[in-house]
Simulated scan of single mutants.
Amino acid sequence: MDGKATVEGADRLISQIGDRDIDLLFLNAGRGLGNGFVDQDWRKVRRIIDTNVTGTVYLAHELGAKMARRGRGRILFTGSIAGFMPGTFQAVYNGTKAFIDSFSIALRHELKDSGVTVTVLMPGPTQTRFFERAEMMDTKVGSDEKDNPADVAKTGYEAMMAGDEQVVSGWKNKLQVAAAHVTPAGTLAEQHRRMAEPGSASSD
């Protein structure tokens, strides 16, 4: 299991940091898993939750507290536009990203007078090994063209350094988020099915 997916692994990372001050904290762990929820291996499901939520929130708690005590620092969470839609055939991943999108903004407002800023980057599908590792290469979203990871990272970094609350990378993703705010959840779930259902890569 990934080191940062467990409290013990996160503690090892924290011990390596030691007493050094942290100015910038990037919490960008993310792992997905395709296919229907009831067909998934529970150990893999648990790994998604532990990586995307447990390890991320624990690091934010322990290292964010040090930043707040010192009175300065910047934290960047990587959420996702997936957090705005029910993730049919990717239900656990979208649920964890909905949590991160919400949690990061709440934390920002808790820390608003501390000297620590919190920013959440919400990208769309990005050209990394994410979809391969999530066993989603036979899906439409897995096979479609994706955003350049360098561009996404630059967008997040610039937003963090500017102290922004949140940023969606890419104009297409911005349009998708705007539409998600006025679209019924059931409709969004069916739209997501067409992107993430196994075998959808071969569909028009």
Rank of each mutant, 00 (worst) to 15 (best):
I49E: 05
E165D: 08
P123R: 09
F99Q: 10
P86L: 12
P123W: 05
S80A: 03
G36I: 12
E165A: 13
R72Y: 15
G32D: 09
E165L: 07
A196H: 05
S200I: 05
L107W: 00
V118S: 09
G36Y: 01
K4I: 00
Q40A: 12
F26H: 15
V7M: 06
P198I: 13
T56N: 13
T126W: 15
V152Q: 11
Q90D: 14
M160V: 06
I22K: 03
A189G: 15
G124S: 05
D50S: 03
A150N: 03
T6K: 07
A10V: 01
A162W: 05
A185R: 06
T119Q: 02
G32S: 10
R129S: 12
R72A: 13
V118Y: 07
A196L: 07
A185D: 08
V57S: 13
Q176G: 11
T51K: 05
A91N: 05
D39Y: 05
R20T: 03
R47F: 06
G36V: 09
S102T: 10
D2W: 14
E190W: 06
A150H: 09
T117I: 02
T78R: 00
D23A: 15
N173Y: 08
M195H: 07
Y58W: 08
T54N: 14
L107P: 07
E132D: 10
D2Q: 10
